[in-house]
Amino acid sequence: MLRLLQNEWMKLWSKKGTWIMAGLMVVLIIAMAGIVKWSDSLMDDESDWKLSTQSDLENDKSSLEMGVLKGESKRHAEENVKISEYRLANDIAPLKNTSREGMIYNPSVGSIALLLTVIVAAGIVASEFSQGTIKMLLTRPVKRWKIMTSKYLAILIFGIVLMLIGFITTILSAFVFFPSAGGQALAVSGGNVVEVSIWSHGLYMLLLSFVNVIITATFAFMVGSVFRSSGMAIGLSLFIYFTGSVIVGLLSRFEIVKYLIFTHMDLTMYESNFVLNDDITLPFSLAVLAVYLVVFLIVSYTVFTKRDITA
């Protein structure tokens, strides 16, 4: 299996496109940091964090009193109240979004890594068909499910490598472009307000967005191996990625929305204050995603191992 994985890895990096993608990852992240820096320099606000924290606190309190919040949203509001009160009481400034710490605390690597991994996942089986190499590949004394597994693992590792390249680039550009602005991230843990390291939170965000990368890439992998067309696989995957939240919005009145994949794809929502549906929690999302993941894989493997190669 290791040798099959080596093969997939070799094929992947022998393509110019892969290097271009890795380069694109670096360039885009630096460019985004540059744009953030530039737009921030235009704003030039020296607002007092205490004033904005005070107003946030009042907002959260009033929405809690109105009693319309429930589930995740309610929990978030309650935590925010605790954190805001703690900040004001102990004079602890929050992280500034456009600071070195803010960049590392909340790295925006996921969506670029997702796009690029989807392209690779869509093509890894489909390209063997379009190149005609599938005949060479499947006439070896290796069972088809092993070949499939090596390909899937190659995608996952590629995704991880991209995320890491992205995170390292983010860290470097955070240090190059942005000054340190102090502040301390806080979170509520077990009812108490605790300090959070920007590094562990950054990695945690990376992990949450990587789940989305896995799900979307697995979907692309499935479409690519069923329809043998990487274009179709990329198209469908990105369609789902971009229209998912719209579909959730349209169907939000219905119970079924809880079981749709779109509702759960972006797990970073549990760290921001915007949850698509109040009835869901992180473990529930993970469970739903796991079911979808297994279904995608079963479909991919079954079609691939049963197919007669005629072309």
Binding site: M10, K11, Q131, T139, V142
Partner: peptide
């Protein structure tokens, strides 16, 4: 099987290495 379709973007040697790893 018919025209041997190889991985055009790799060298001949890497192609052979690829198939050697599968045996």
């Amino acid at each position: 099987v018919e025209n041997p379709e190889m991985y055009k973007f790799m060298s001949g040697y890497k192609n052979l290495l690829h198939f050697a790893r599968m045996q």
